[in-house]
Design a protein around this nucleic acid. Structure first.
Lengths: 230, 230
DNA sequence: GCGTAACCTTACGCGCGAGTAGGTATCATC
DNA sequence: GATGATACCTACTCGCGCGTAAGGTTACGC
């Protein structure tokens, strides 16, 4: 028999096991259709333990959200910033003063992002498919998302400044939103298409975005024909 | 008293009232936390009626999904195609043979899209915030989304062909995915920021996308530096 | 004016799953 | 080898809300 980990384990270890199980189950079933019993079973533990360590179902979900979100952020930041990051994760300053040229920063960020999604499909699902919508979590997620957007917007602003041009904050913000959205959408694509490599996906988006951004930053502007489209 | 619609109403009318109520409630509470009683109450009717007309909670939600999705599609198609559309909604052929130049088509589509979202915030929420994730609806939504992507991809392909260039389908598809994702993301922005006009948002995205696409279609390509980034 | 079909109601059954009470085994340590 | 603490369990309660049974009431055909 040699039972598999029938031993008692310290709290910290069990908590991670529970979170692993929870992420898996939540990502498959969604918040409501996931049962605490199933999560407990998959973690090789009984239900009251989950309540003792991680609290309510809602608190458990938020814990998942936090862990996965932090991991994602860390993966991206440590890819973009050459040395080990010292400043707190998510602060725009970390990236703002990086020594790498902006296009390389962007590409590294994208590659890290798609790599993370490819390696943590379940985590990604929990974050961006489940948390959307459900009232208590939406705000939590929105906060994380807006950290992402700020980082990207900071990067774009820096590119623009480097080109010696002016830019209205609202425009930069919109660009950042669009870029983040494009990334999320392609991430979904990556989740469902195992064969696509993160590198290729990152390069594709980089092309799409950078060349667009390039033109914009050089001052080019598309606009409706003078008469307006009806 | 002159009771407000205490009268009996024909089925078709009641069904629409129920769907209106359902969309509102679902969008606020999410699928699971919405109660059939509340939906019935808001529709000014009692619960068994809902079951009699629209069936199960799940079926009701799908009905909402269909109605809102169809409306969105129709809004876009009828904006892009000059005359009243005759071909079935969502078929790529409707757009493929349009007489308008591609940039105008794209801009009209985007404007119609953001206008719809601005005017039907609840409907949009139901579609893209709730249906994501929940197993039974995800496929339903994915189908609609992929119709959108196909339409956009068709448009892009047409642009490329018009420029006399070749393109690999996978690249076009990825571009379409990115564009749709960017649109969705900006749509969320629009939902939460009432002050932003659909026109402005559409123009912003158009700039971002078209200038990017323009470069790409002219054969420009961004690529990592020869040595590769580490 | 009467049958009948469609509209609409009140009032309930019942399963499912979140959360808990209360108890047992193992470890650490002195 | 007692004492405390921490890891862990079985077996329950209980509320919530989906879905329905059974019965009233209005409109319309003839």
């Amino acid at each position: 028999m040699q039972a598999v980990s029938k031993k008692r384990l310290p709290r910290a270890v069990r908590e991670q096991q529970m979170l692993d199980a929870a992420v898996t189950v939540f990502s498959r079933a969604g918040f409501h259709d996931a049962s605490m019993d199933e999560i407990a079973a998959r973690a090789g533990i009984s239900k009251p333990m989950v309540y003792a360590y991680l609290g309510t179902k809602e608190e458990l979900f938020i814990a998942c959200l936090h862990r996965e979100g932090t991991r994602l952020m860390e993966a991206i930041v440590s890819a973009v910033v050459p040395q080990a990051p010292r400043a707190p994760v998510g602060s725009a300053a970390v990236i703002g003063d990086g020594v790498l040229p902006p296009d390389e920063q962007l590409w590294r960020g994208l590659r890290a992002f798609f790599t993370f999604v490819g390696d943590h499909r379940d985590g990604w699902s929990v974050l961006y498919r489940q948390a959307r919508g459900q009232a208590p979590f939406a705000t939590e997620l929105a906060a994380m998302r807006s950290r992402m957007v700020d980082v990207v917007a900071g990067l774009l602003a820096r590119v623009i400044a480097a080109g010696g041009r002016q830019s209205r904050p609202a425009d930069v913000m919109a660009m950042a939103y669009a870029l983040v959205g494009a990334g999320e959408s392609l991430a979904d694509w990556v989740v469902d298409h195992v064969e696509e490599s993160p590198e290729v996906t990152a390069t594709r988006l980089m092309n799409f975005v950078w060349l667009g951004a390039g033109d914009l930053l050089r001052g080019a502007t598309w606009r409706p024909p003078a008469g307006g489209y009806q």
